[in-house]
Structures are given as structure tokens and as C-alpha cells.
Design a protein around this nucleic acid. Structure first.
Lengths: 345, 345
DNA sequence: TTGTAGGCGTTATCAT
DNA sequence: ATGATAACGCCTACAA
């Protein structure tokens, strides 16, 4: 009955490429080689109990038929390989490769694999990726700008670790950066150096829910600095954005003696603008960045910046996945940047 | 009968974490909710044909049981998502993020996903990753330093695209960089500028099978340059390696007027060393890099370099996957670097 | 050494 | 609206 019924639908060597290409299966190979599918399995997986001759023949047929085992069928039966999905805003922004390296290292250490996708700084893509990656992995690590409520419909039921979003969550695991501490450290440093007229290059609120500007204002008030909100300029989060912002800041307040930049990219732009304007850094104007990108080593002078251990951040995220996978909802993990004083202050 | 039977084996909140945690399946949820597994499936997948009330109840149970659909079982049944494995030597080396961005973009455009792993510049890891990733993906794109013969036992039967290996292959698809053309363009430029005593900072043979040194020597001979193999120094492929190599080169040949560096990273190191030695670039000594990393924009002076469109390289690799998946073995795709003259020559 | 039976967790199809 | 049944492609028994 289940025997050798007529092969009604023979896929043959149909390499039409299109969608209808019936997959070559273990049984197809078996049929073609005149053995049972079990024997083929043994041959493919290099198990011992098989005649070397049969084996060679089977492997030959398999190759000819372009047989490729289905990872799904395999995964269903064999001990699972954990796969983590990683969503970052932009692979090319030098911040993220370092972060990714941390994730890879920690994942590798556990024998896990990592599926990566980039949102290209496009918030709607965040959600789409969340959904599509979510169905393919055992857990997600993601930079995200949406709130829990916005996220909820898109996060099927995958354990999720959100990185540096700056919002609490009662549902997802978090890895946070203590930005406030970082800003304070940077401001304190500038103030210790005697600076009082300090400008800030900020970023559109989407990058950061107001922490930087809030703390900046707080510190300014605590120290009675002679500056107001006009000393804070919002710029694009790019080199050119930083340059433009610096120019604007300088035009508005020619007497400023220091600038605190949203991040290193912006700071580098500012440094260039300063050079163009004939402003010497740090003599005429000090400059503090944020992130501690390794490219800032290359600058002349090297940038004073709040160094964040991005690699560690990635490792922490994977650690949170650990806990999630163990069934807990761990408390937020927090990483604090460290002031790295170099040539620009 | 199928109703509310005693739940004989209640996994409950067993968060022992260890390996034995039996997976919660659709049927477990079904049993707990007193419905058929089919109904659960409908609820989970938001299909229409289900009573909103049942649905809510089922989803509730699912959540409580921490149900998570198996991506394998799903993949087995649903139209497959193509997954490409991507193996790079080092995520943090600024060359590769750009390359990866190209791969991601091209993959995304096709609705494919990308599984990434890094060899950390460790050749043995190449092979291990090749094997482990190979069983999890539909095709591989990889930077590889081994020969076809060495690779063969590790490449199960996955379509493989090798990037910039500099060796022909009769088995795998290739994306190559026309390094020879690049070197020639760089040398010609230096020679046009009147340089004759040109040093080269080369890299250990593993990075590059002799193309650079060969072409360097060829051009030197063609133009009867007064230099021999001692004008070529092998250095570590790092900033410090570049600096050390420059120093060695300068010590050996104080009269050199130009240096051709293996890549931009090395060139940047050389630039620093030059500055330390009080050698002005380009006045006392010209410098040409290779790769066209975007960080070289930030330097002062910006680096003259052979710009390679790394993003494009990634896209080309994915295109080769296309062909492979269609059953062809495409001819090598070749990308040629473009001389980008800036401040150091 | 080789083949047969059963099950992995899901979705689709067809009854009910 | 819900449930039974049959795939999907593979592997691990166990039987021959």
C-alpha cells in the first residue's frame, strides 16, 4: 500500500530556478541510488554502519542531485543550536561593530549563532525586523527606539533584550548605559578646568530621550553657569551635522570656551569646523565627545571623550539573554562610561 | 475524553535551566487550554476562524506556559526563508562593516536573512565556522585563506562564495579584487609624481598571496627604479605594525621619498610614525594607502589611497549566491579599486 | 549492513 | 468555530 506507487509528480532536474523547485530530499537520493532513505542518511552523516562501497555510491548520487539537507528537519530532531537575532541601527557607524563584536564573542563562547540585521536608522524597519527575525531565532538583542506598548504587537513571544533605550520595561530585559553619570563626569571635568561658558551639541530627541539635555541643564544650574538653553544646539548625528552645529554655536556665542558633543562622530565634525574657523582646540575651545570610538585615537589632537566599553555592552546583552532563556526576567544591567581625558581639553 | 484529563506531566515553572527542559509545544498548550492543538495554532498565528473568546483564553495559557513556537517545525512546513551565512575575519576592522553593509543590503532586498560569524583572524576557526555555519544556512559568503583542497572536507554541500582570496577555484563561486590593477595605479601615480625611491610596507603572505609584492617588483623593474626587495618590509596588519614598518623602512633607506602601504590601517600607522620622526607628509615622504576606509577622511592630511567599494563587494557576493542557488557556477566577479588622490601625495 | 516504523512541532486540508 | 489527520524532511530506535 505505502509501497511503490506510481511517482506521479517527478521533480526531475527541473532547475527552472523559480519558486516551484521541489526540494531534493533524502528519499529522492535513496530512490535514485536504489537504497533506503536510511542508508542515505548514514552515508551523509558519516555514520559507521555502512558498506564503504554503498556509501561512495550514495554520496555520488547525492552530489549529482545537489542534495542539501534541510536545516529545519534536522533542527527538529537534533539538539538545538541557540540562535540569537541581533538588530542594530547601522553597521557602518563605528559604534556598532564594536558592540557586535561583544555579542559575537559572548555568543560564540556559548556555542550560539547570531543572525544580524540593520534597521538603517529607520524606526519602522525596527518593527518589521522585530517581527521577521523574531520568528527565526530563540532570542533577540536589539537597539530599539519604541516604547513597550508600541513594541508589543511585533514581539511575538521571543525573549527580547533592549539595549540603551533609556526607558524602563516590565516586560523585556534591558541593558542600559548610565548616560547621566557620563554627562555629569564630562561636565564636572570641564568645570574643574575652569570652563563656565559651555555649549552643547545635542541630537534630535529620537536618539536619546532627553537625558543629555536634562543633565546638562541640571549641572549648569547647580554650578550657576552663565548659559541657558540657547547654548544647546540640536544637530544631525553626523560629521557634517557636528560641524554645522559647532559653527552655529560659535556664531551665537563667540565667547564659549568649551563644547560638549552628543557623541564622537559629532565631536569630530566639530573639531573640523573649529579648525576651519581658526579656533584652536583645546586652547581657544575645549571639546568633549561621547562614546570613545577607537577612531578618535587617530585624531590630532586625540579626543577627550566619555569612553563606553561597547564590547562589554554586547557581552552584557548576551548575558541577559542567558537569564531570559532560563526563564527569569533579570533586572536591567547598567554600564557606566568612563571619562578619558586626552588632547582636546 | 480529550477534555480535562489529569495533567500527568506538568512542566510547570520548572526553571531548572539545564538541558533537560522539555520544550513546551503547541499540544501542551492545547491540553492545558482544553482545545485541540489546531485551535492553538490558529490563535497563535492570528488566523481568522476562531472565537475571539477561545482565542484570548488560549493565548493566555500560551503565555503562562511560556510557549514559543519552534522555528524548525515552522520552517519545515512554511515557504522557506533563505538564510545566508557570512564569515568575516574581524568585525572591528573598519573594512568589514562596510562589506557587511553591502551584504545586508543585498540580502534584505531579496528578503533573505544573514547569519554572521567572525574568525577573529584565526585560520583554524575558518574551518570550524565553515562547518558549523554550513549546516545552518542555505549558502555561505566567506573570507577564506585556505585552498579549495583544504576547504573541501569542511564545506558540506553548501553553495559557497569566497571573497578576495586571490586563487582560482573550479568548485566555488568567487568575488575577486583586482589588486594588481590597484597596485599598478598607485605605483604609476607615485612615479608620475617623480618618485623613484619607493618603499613598500607589505603584509605576511597569509593576507595576500604575493600579488602586491609581485606587482610592486614588476613595476619597479619596468621603470628601472633604484630599489630592490629590501625596500619591501613585512609588517603586522595593524596601526602599530604600520608604524614600526615605516620606522624600519626609513632607518634602512633614509633617502626614500614615498611609501606604498599594504592597507589604510597600516598607512595610518606609518603616518603617525612619520610625524614622530619629524618627517613631513607629503613634502618629505609621500604615502599611498589601500582600501579607502572612510576613517581616512578624518586624517590630517587625508590619505591618498586606492579606494575599494567594499559595499559593492558585499553586494556582488550576494549576487553570486543568487547564481549558485539557481544551480549555476558563475564566473568570478571582479572589482577594481580606484585611485583616490588626496593629501598624502 | 540494511530497511521499517515512529516521532520531532508545526501548518494545511478537510470534515464536523 | 473547531477538531482529526496528514504531511514536511530528518533521525533514532529496532527489526531483518
Amino acid at each position: 500500500m505505502a509501497g511503490q506507487r506510481e511517482t506521479e509528480e517527478q521533480p526531475g532536474r527541473d532547475s527552472l530556478g523559480a519558486g516551484t523547485v521541489k526540494r531534493v530530499t533524502l528519499r529522492d537520493v535513496a530512490k535514485a541510488a536504489g537504497v533506503s532513505h536510511q542508508t542515505v542518511s548514514r552515508a551523509i552523516n558519516g555514520k559507521g554502519e555502512i558498506d564503504p562501497e554503498t556509501r561512495r555510491r550514495v554520496l555520488d548520487v547525492a552530489r549529482r542531485l545537489r542534495y542539501q539537507p534541510s536545516r529545519f528537519a534536522r533542527g527538529l530532531v537534533r539538539p538545538e543550536v541557540v540562535t540569537v537575532g541581533l538588530i542594530v541601527p547601522d553597521v557602518v557607524n563605528p559604534f556598532f561593530p564594536e558592540f557586535m563584536a561583544g555579542v559575537f564573542a559572548a555568543a560564540d563562547q556559548r556555542g550560539w549563532q547570531v543572525l544580524v540585521a540593520s534597521t538603517e536608522n529607520t524606526p519602522p524597519r525596527e518593527l518589521a525586523l522585530l517581527r521577521s527575525l523574531g520568528r527565526q531565532v530563540d532570542a533577540l538583542v536589539s537597539y530599539l527606539s519604541h516604547s513597550d506598548a508600541q513594541l508589543e504587537p511585533y514581539v511575538a513571544s521571543v525573549p527580547l533584550v533592549i539595549v540603551d533605550r533609556g526607558m524602563d520595561s516590565s516586560t523585556y530585559a534591558l541593558v542600559e548605559v548610565d548616560t547621566a553619570a557620563g554627562i555629569r563626569a564630562g561636565m564636572r571635568h570641564l568645570i574643574d578646568q575652569g570652563h563656565r561658558r559651555i555649549g552643547m551639541i545635542d541630537c534630535a530627541p529620537i536618539c536619546d530621550p532627553f537625558v543629555r539635555r536634562r543633565v546638562f541643564a541640571e549641572v549648569a544650574e547647580e554650578h550657576a553657569l552663565p548659559i541657558d538653553d540657547h547654548w544647546r544646539i540640536v544637530g544631525e548625528q553626523t560629521l557634517d551635522g557636528g560641524a554645522a552645529a559647532f559653527e552655529a554655536l560659535h556664531a551665537a556665542h563667540p565667547d564659549l570656551t568649551a563644547v560638549f558633543a552628543f557623541n564622537d562622530l559629532v565631536a569630530i565634525g566639530a573639531l573640523r569646523a573649529a579648525r576651519r574657523l581658526g579656533i584652536r582646540v583645546p586652547d581657544d575651545c575645549a571639546l568633549v565627545g561621547y562614546d570613545g570610538l577607537s577612531v578618535t585615537d587617530l585624531l590630532d589632537p586625540p579626543l577627550t571623550t566619555l569612553y563606553l566599553d561597547k564590547r562589554r555592552l554586547g557581552e552584557m546583552a548576551v548575558h541577559q539573554v542567558d537569564r531570559l532563556l532560563a526563564g527569569e526576567l533579570p533586572p536591567p544591567a547598567v554600564l557606566t562610561p568612563r571619562l578619558n581625558v586626552r588632547g582636546t581639553t
